[in-house]
Simulated assay, not measured.
Amino acid sequence: MAQLIRRATNPRVFIDASTVDLVDEDLVAEFEPEWTGNGLVEAAPTDGSGIKILCGQEIGTVSVTAELWDAAPPMDLDTWQDAAEIHVVWPSATMDFGTTGADGEDVLPLPGSGDYRVRVYGRNRDDGDPRDDTAPVEEYVIQVWPVSGSAASHEPVNGSVTYKQTSSLGARYRLGPARGLEL
């Protein structure tokens, strides 16, 4: 059974340009995600050194919890609108999800560089931009675990698996302009 190793939580991660950016120690996540794969999470296509999570707000704050597990954690689909998982080859032992937090509160230490699965859950993504003060907080949980050897070589073709897609925001991006939807 999978064991939780670490958890880092920040209930007020500032977002700009509609994304939570997960970055390594170089603090760079410069790429344009397509979002058509799962409408929730994308990794940098060339080196995996950055991950972006699509938010319902353009500018604002969201709640983010990041967890390091020793193996794939149990699924929790009942309380989340969207859930997707990707494969990354992470270049460092640091995964920063806020880049503005004090004292490392927005950093999830990893065992080192290498192959990881990253599962993201999101909810309250459809509650408007800008947010009304009475709207529920937009929330994300990021679960990370190492994969090695034969597990890494058996990843899906694009490294992405979608488990649940119920938000309108995610649907707009998954279906996108090819289906005549306005983004």
Rank of each mutant, 00 (worst) to 15 (best):
Q3C: 08
I5V: 14
T9M: 10
T9N: 01
T9R: 13
T9V: 11
P11K: 14
R12M: 09
T19I: 13
D21T: 10
D24Q: 09
E25S: 03
E25H: 14
D26G: 03
V28Q: 13
F31V: 04
F31M: 03
F31K: 04
E32Y: 15
G39L: 00
V41F: 10
E42Y: 08
E42K: 08
A44Y: 13
P45D: 07
S49A: 10
G50I: 07
K52N: 03
K52P: 06
G56T: 05
G56V: 02
G60F: 00
L68N: 12
M75K: 02
D76E: 12
D78I: 00
T79I: 05
T79N: 12
A84N: 07
E85Y: 05
S92W: 11
V107L: 06
R117Y: 09
R123Q: 00
R125W: 04
D129W: 09
R131V: 02
R131Y: 07
D132N: 15
D132R: 09
Y140F: 15
Q143Y: 15
V147Y: 11
H154A: 14
S160G: 07
V161Y: 13
S168N: 14
L169W: 02
G170M: 12
R172M: 02
Y173I: 04
G176M: 04
G176C: 00
A178Q: 15
G180R: 13
L183H: 12
